[in-house]
Each structure stands twice: as C-alpha cells, then as structure tokens.
Computed example of a mutant assay.
Amino acid sequence: MTAFSLDPAQTSWCEELRALAEQRLRPLAEKGEPGHVNRPLIAALGASGLLDRMLDSGALDLCLLRESLARGCTEAETALALQGLGSHPVLRAGTPAQRARWLPEVRAGRAVAAFALSEPGAGSDAAALSLDAASDGGLGPGSASGPGRGWRLTGEKCWISNAPQADFYTVFARTTRGVGSRGVTAFLVPADRPGLTGCALDMLSPHPIGTLCFDGVPVTVEDVLGEPDRGFRVAMDTLNLFRPSVGAFAVGMARAALDATLAHTAGRTAFGGPLKDLQAVSHQVAEMATRTEAARLLVYAAAAAHDAGEEGVPRRAAMAKLYATETAQYVVDTAVQLHGARALRRGHLLEHLYREVRAPRIYEGASEVQRTIIARESYANREASA
C-alpha cells in the first residue's frame, strides 16, 4: 500500500468482506436481541475465519477489516471489535496457560471477551481507576509476598461492552494506591468467579453494555496479565492499536451513509430534476466525500505507523480517532438531512447509523481526550527538537 491507495489484493479483500457482511452476517444480526450478546453472530465470525484474522492482524489489516464490515453490517463489526478489545491483552501480555485456555475459544467464536477499564468515576481518565485489589495472601500457596500472592477485587466497572454476558473479562484494578497509573494491574477474570455480578444498561445504540460489581472477587498471580502494577501499559498498548481502528469503524459508517446519499440524490426528483443537480445538494455531497476520504487516509497513516513501529503513534492514533469519528457524525447527519423524513423511520439504514455513530466519539477516549493527547504530544515534540 502506498500512502494514498490500497493495492488490488487489499481492495478485493475489502469488497469480499463487505459482501460477507451484507449477505451472511446482517441476517444473523437482525435476528439478535438488542442490547444482548449475539452468540450466533460471533460464532459466524469465528467460522468465517475473521476472528482469527483479527487477532493475527496488524493495525492496518484491522482497520481494513473493521471499515469493510461496518459498511455492510455495523453489528458484525462491533461484535468483532469487542472480541479483539477484550482478548488482545491476553494475546500480548497473557501467560502461555492463559493464552492456551482462552484464545482458541475466542478464535472459534465460542467464548465472549470483554475489556473492563471504565468506572463510574474514571472513564477516559484511566489513571484514576479505583477498583480496589486488596492483598490476600491466603488465596494460594506461599506467603502474601510470595508466589502464591492473591488479591480481592472490590468496586464497580461501568460502560463495559459485552457485560454482564461475557465469558471472561480483562479487568484493570488498583493494586498500589497513591502512584497513579503505576499502581494498576491487569487481571484475566473468568465470569464465573464468586462475587462477580453485573447488569445490562439500556443505551441509545443497542449494543450489549453493562456494569460489573466486584464483591471481594478472588484473583491470584496466575490471573495477572503482564506484571503487577504494570497494567496501565497493557491498557495503553491495546488502546493504541484499537484507536485507529475505531476511526476505521467510523469511516465505514461514513462511507455507508455516503453510498446511500449518492444513490438517493441521483434518483430522487425535486424541483424539476434530480436532487444531485441542485448546487446546494451537490456541494454538501462533495463535502461529505472529501471529509470521508481525508479521514480514511488519516486512519491508514496511523495504522501504518503503528505497524512500522514509528514514533508518535499515540498522537497519530488520537488524530485518526478524533477526525474520523467527528467526520462520521457530520456525514451521517448530513445524509439524514438530504434524505428527509424517510431517514427518520425505524429500520432505515440512516436511522440505524444515526444511533450507531454517536458512541465512538466517547468510547476508548472521548474526543476531548484525543485533543489533549494531540496537544501534549505536539508540545513534547517541539521541546525535543528545540
């Protein structure tokens, strides 16, 4: 891939993904119950090899995968992305035993994963986590400071996708107080651990999202992902990979809205001719197309930088997520306006996209957080080069 286009193999793969999403995955999505994990859909993602591809992909392939699925079926895209978000810490930081237990199940679409970072008082500010991991040396062999050291998790997580129906959770908890991000540990917590409960939340977009309550949930060193007190890096590694791909999801929605708008304005007659011949309409379509293409290129550039191990990935990932999600909001909103009242009817593609497009500007770091990251990294670069 050059900086400006996909090669023929990539283009062909994207078209195949879009067709798969429209023809095979969308019917399964439509049979699902809003607000609940759609296990048949996840099983189909596994059977088609897409979960395998997602876990083995670099950032660029992940972006192409998410963008293409989003153009054809947003529910399939979201189900795949949530599997990746919840299982990527296991892939990158898990022990051989953890990986052997869970990753084959994720790849096959049999186990549902979840990424449990956000809390009622610590959404975008991941360093402010308060879920308490109190030392409990009696949970395993050895002393409290030895190899059998354990913890009890107490507190609450909120806005957790796939909760409370996931089979396991990547949970971030505070093991050392008073040291900010340096005192956070990542744990792999199976859903059947005693003391772990949750409830679903009714959201604008009908995704499976809920809360988790930890009432002295036992975990041991065998459940740690990475190292104790180093879990913040596990979270950031995951987010740096997935933030550009959130932008790809947004680009996919923007492209779907643009496709629908081109078809509608070319075929709809008003004031003696097709809508596309009205300058007010054609200029809006031109703006939609330009912003969508700019967002697409920014996402690809951030993903390519991640895969190449270049410097400045957090800044570029933040730019990609910020611009793409804000662009998708604009494009979908404009598409609704150009379609008129028909786009507001339940079941219309744009009515669906209008509800879907709002959340990505908030999750995995709100737009305001992305602007903060971009500004901070920009000033740091200036100081480093001065």
Rank of each mutant, 00 (worst) to 15 (best):
A173H: 01
D277N: 14
G178Y: 09
G123T: 12
T265M: 03
F4C: 11
G58L: 08
V179G: 11
S143D: 06
R243I: 01
E77I: 00
R342V: 15
L20A: 13
A21I: 03
A366M: 09
F115A: 06
A317I: 08
E310K: 11
E368L: 14
R177S: 13
S135K: 11
A304S: 11
V246S: 12
Q329W: 14
R53L: 15
G137E: 00
R345H: 15
P164K: 09
A43L: 12
G195Y: 13
G146Y: 00
V37D: 02
L51C: 12
G365T: 05
G46A: 11
P314C: 07
G309E: 01
C213M: 12
A163I: 03
A263P: 08
R39T: 07
V285D: 00
G109F: 02
V251L: 06
R99C: 12
L25V: 05
T74I: 06
G252A: 11
G109M: 05
E364A: 15
G109K: 08
R382Y: 11
M253V: 07
G72C: 08
S245R: 02
T220E: 02
G273I: 00
V336Q: 07
A93F: 15
F187E: 01
V234Q: 03
E67H: 08
V299M: 09
E77T: 00
L322D: 06
S130A: 14
A380W: 04
E377N: 08
T2S: 12
F115H: 11
A359K: 10
R193W: 02
V37S: 07
L241N: 01
R358A: 13
A266W: 00
L129D: 01
T327K: 10
S48R: 13
L69S: 05
V106P: 04
T176M: 06
Y169Q: 02
S5M: 03
R193P: 00
S143N: 04
R71K: 14
T372E: 09
G216W: 03
E222H: 07
P34C: 08
L188Y: 02
A260W: 02
D259N: 11
G94S: 03
S87L: 04
A111S: 11
W151K: 01
P147T: 00
E383K: 10
G35H: 05
A384W: 07
G35F: 09
F115S: 01
G142V: 00
A111E: 02
E377M: 11
L131K: 08
Q370L: 08
E351Y: 14
E105V: 06
L353E: 05
A29H: 04
A79I: 00
A341C: 08
F242C: 06
I209P: 01
S205Q: 11
G347F: 07
V90M: 04
I362M: 09
Q98A: 10
N381V: 03
R255G: 10
G347K: 10
R174Q: 13
A21M: 03
V332I: 14
A289K: 12
L69K: 09
T11S: 13
S57Q: 09
H207K: 12
E75Q: 15
D333M: 12
G309Y: 05
D132F: 09
D259Y: 05
R24L: 08
V285M: 13
A320E: 01
D56I: 05
V184N: 03
T265H: 04
T325F: 06
A317Q: 04
T334R: 15
G72E: 00
V313W: 02
G309C: 08
F187R: 10
D61A: 14
E30G: 15
Q83H: 09
